[in-house]
């Protein structure tokens, strides 16, 4: 679905403040995958996602989306924007229309769809992110923070992209709001058969959802592997200034001290299942 070949990006090339943001990145993401993208600020992850829908052009290398080469003469770059939906950080700040419905319709309208099709898509997208139909005629500015963010996500979803990229979709939300958004994203991924790239600082969030994790460090791909395999390399992650979930730290530490539990545990449920049989209580084993 997505293929990068030796992609590099240099800010202000040739100038006195030249800065390499991405260096020789090659990777492939398959259709329908759920990718977690992590890396600290300045690791190149923002640059990477902005390149995937053509907001930034790589200064070297090639990017292919669904077989089409980005920024080549034969590719309609606006179509790429619709194929690769990007939800930026704090997307609620991009809302501008009088009503929620009109705002969600902005993308589909730019695609030149028929009014019926647009209406259909607005309803679908709103439903997908869990916005009640009664909210569609309200002003987006009268909604709560969490609702605004869902309107913004619906606005991208309504373009029915093949790839959905979300940059920190839970930033600033409280635990309930965060869990709800994450649940909706998982639901979309499953029901709409989209390829999803989720950028997050929260290892706990990524651990819950991703099939594979892409770790960026200093403009390069540091790791790109199955979720449990990445969390097995906790020490390396810590060295890159990234946290592993607390639960992984606990199980790793137990294993080091001789407790027979497997590697790569990253959810409380897994830890519970591993540990319960090991705990003895009045002579009887727990299960």
């Amino acid at each position: 679905m997505i293929k990068l070949e030796q992609v590099g990006y240099v800010y202000m090339q040739g100038g006195p403040f030249e800065k390499t943001a991405l260096n020789n990145v090659s990777l492939t993401i398959n259709r329908g995958e759920f990718i977690g993208l992590i890396g600290h600020t300045g690791s190149g992850k923002s640059t990477l996602i902005q390149m995937l829908n053509g907001l930034l052009k790589p200064t070297s290398g090639k990017i292919f989306i669904d077989g089409k080469e980005l920024n080549s003469k034969d590719t309609d770059m606006r179509q790429i924007r619709f194929d690769v939906g990007l939800v930026m950080q704090y997307p609620e700040y991009q809302l501008f229309e009088e009503t929620v419905a009109k705002d969600i319709a902005f993308g589909p309208t730019n695609m030149g769809l028929s009014p019926e099709e647009i209406e259909e898509r607005v309803k679908f997208a709103a439903n997908m992110v869990g916005l009640k139909p009664a909210l569609l005629d309200k002003s987006p500015f009268d909604l709560s923070g969490g609702q605004k963010r869902r309107v913004a996500i619906a606005g991208v979803l309504a373009m029915e992209p093949k790839v959905l990229i979300l940059d920190e979709p839970t930033a600033g939300l409280d635990p309930a709001g965060r869990d709800e958004i994450l649940f909706k994203i998982k639901d979309m991924h499953e029901r709409m058969d989209m390829t999803v790239i989720l950028v997050s600082h929260s290892m706990e969030d990524i651990a819950k959802l991703a099939d594979r994790i892409l770790v960026m460090n200093q403009g390069e791909v540091a790791m790109f592997d199955r979720t449990d395999a990445v969390f097995r390399r906790g020490e390396e992650l810590t060295r890159m200034g990234l946290n592993v979930p607390q639960i992984t730290r606990i199980t790793d530490s137990l294993r080091k001290q001789g407790v027979p539990i497997r590697e790569g545990i990253y959810t409380v449920e897994d830890a519970l299942n591993e540990l319960a049989p090991l705990l003895r209580q009045e002579g009887a084993r727990l299960c």
């Binding site: 530490s253 137990l254 027979p260 540990l275 090991l278």
Partner: peptide, 11 residues
């Protein structure tokens, strides 16, 4: 947490 678990697990 690790200390508490170790105390209760019979390795």
């Amino acid at each position: 947490c690790v200390a508490e678990l170790l105390r209760n697990i019979e390795i």
